[in-house]
Structure formats: C-alpha cells, structure tokens
Design a protein around this nucleic acid. Structure first.
Lengths: 145, 145
DNA sequence: CCACTTTTCCCCACTACACCCCAAAATAAT
DNA sequence: ATTATTTTGGGGTGTAGTGGGGAAAAGTGG
C-alpha cells in the first residue's frame, strides 16, 4: 500500500515520474496503467488500473436517469484520464488536472494506501495548516469508530 | 468504460470525430454503430449499439397503455438516430439533436462510462457552475450509500 | 415516368500534437 | 571511487483531428 511523501519536478510536457518507493506496491494486474481524477480537496488522485476498477464498479451502480447522480458522474469523470507509464516510469498529467490542483513546476506526491495523490507543495502546506483541530483531536474522533 | 472530456469541432456537415481515447473502449459487438438520443439535461447521449440494446430492453418493459409511460417512450425515441462511424471515425449528428443541445461549431465530448455525451461547451460550463453544492459535498452524499 | 435538385456518403490530403526513443544528470549503493 | 538505479530533459515520427471535393443516392416537382 502506498505511503510517504516525495517532491518531484514536473516538466513542460506535464510528465511526472512515479517514485521508485511507490512503484514497488503497484500490482502487476495494473499493467503499468493509471487512472487520474480530480480528488477530494485540491489534489489529483492517481489509481493503479486495478484499484480504479473497484471505483468504477461503484459508479456503474448509479442511475443516470436521476439528475443528481448524473451530475456526480459528470464531475467525477470530466477530468478523468488514463495513461501508462513510459519506459522511465513517468505519466503525463493533462493540463486541466494541473489547473485544478494549481500545480506549476513542482509536485508533492503523497502515498495514500490504494491511491497516490499529487499536490502543489504550496497548496498542501496551506491545507495542512488550515484546520483548527489538532492531529490528536481528529485521531480520537475518526479512529474511535 | 468511457471517461474524460474532449473539445472537438463539428463541421458544417454535422460531423464529429470520436476521440481515439474513447474509441479504445468501444466493444467490437457494437459494429462501429451508435444510437444517439436526447440526454438528461441539455446534451446528446451516444450509445454504442451493444449498450443501446440494454436500454432498449428496459424500454420494452414499459406499458404503453399507460399514458405517462407512453409519453416517455415518445420523448425518448422522437429524436433517436442510428449511425455508423465513417473511415475517419466520425459520426453525423442530425440537426434536431444539435438544436436540442444548442450546439454550434464546437462540441464538448464527455465520456460517461457506458455512453458518450455531447455538449455545447458554453452550456456545459453553465450547467457545472449552476449548482451550489461543491464536488466534495455531492461526492460524500452520493458515494456514502 | 423522367429530369432536376439536394443531401448523403466516401475518399483523399493537410496539419499539428502526442507518443516513443535516446541520452544526460543526479542520487543512491557497493 | 565506481557502478547501478533513479530522475529529468529534449528531438524525431506516426497518428489523430479536420476540411473539402466528387460520386452516388434520395427526395421533389413537372
């Protein structure tokens, strides 16, 4: 499962290399293919193909004849993009996702168990320091279930 | 399954090319044939033939001796149109559907799992920004089920 | 039933960008 | 210090997207 954070550069073609430490955890079933979508909060979610398929199964259960469910599906898929790693273990992130995450020339790559998140370092720092609650408070709330 | 958005042009013959990224997901059983109908909200739904058949099965279960169901069937089928891709992977969209979706010379093509949606870029942006709810709110509502 | 007009379909051709390959720099390991 | 691996950068080529012309077919009216 993915974990840890890494700072990498992103070149002018939108390419980001997947850290070797994270690559180890990619299942062979993913076929070096990834699906990226806009994430919760200003980041990009990157799912190895096999993990994405479990998300897709949930989405397939939505009833697209209901306006609200249709809207969610559009929001979720409008910036979705599939790509394979090149021989140098890089993927290309399209411009609309970079805009969404306010990314310029550096990215913060965050391992998040089943998926990888891509942040603008600046935005991520702001996000972390934005909450009033301490780590201990949130921990006790979320983990006591 | 279809995903992602693409801006393509529509020429004065009503032709739109299906993005190569979406073409990959069309089942061979579809025989390069598509059925287009008016969609939920101001867009055009494009189903590969094999996917359309599952919709058709549902429609066949409607009781046309009930006025409301009969009306729905008429609304659904009045602008339905079947067409095959040409050698350049384009389909022709009839004028009445273009009018319905308020399309002029550019289209936004949206992959939506089983189907492809065609929007006027202007109309789509208005649609997306029309809701008060954020992506995060809708996501937590719809996906927590 | 025939002639004419209009639309549809198919083919060819151009342009641009995305992809793939090669290569260098930087970091880590031996 | 040397080797191996990881990260970063750039250049050529194939294919995707677009536009237009001409043949075939369909529709319209005399």
């Amino acid at each position: 499962m993915f974990k840890g954070q890494f700072i990498h550069s992103i070149d002018n073609k939108g390419r980001v290399s997947i850290p070797a430490k994270l690559r180890k955890y990619i299942a062979p079933e993913a076929n070096n293919s990834f699906v990226m979508t806009q994430g919760i909060d200003a980041c990009i979610d990157i799912y190895p193909r096999d993990q994405w398929l479990t998300i897709e199964e949930k989405l397939l259960k939505l009833n697209t004849f209901i306006q609200k469910e249709s809207r969610f599906l559009r929001l979720m898929l409008q910036n979705a993009h599939e790509d394979e790693m090149d021989a140098q273990s890089r993927i290309v992130i399209p411009q609309n996702l970079l805009d969404y995450a306010q990314i310029e020339n550096e990215v913060l790559i965050l391992g998040a168990l089943k998926k990888i998140e891509i942040w603008s370092p600046r935005v991520y720092n702001a996000y972390i320091s934005s909450s009033q609650e301490t780590f201990e408070q949130i921990a006790s709330e979320v983990m006591s279930l």
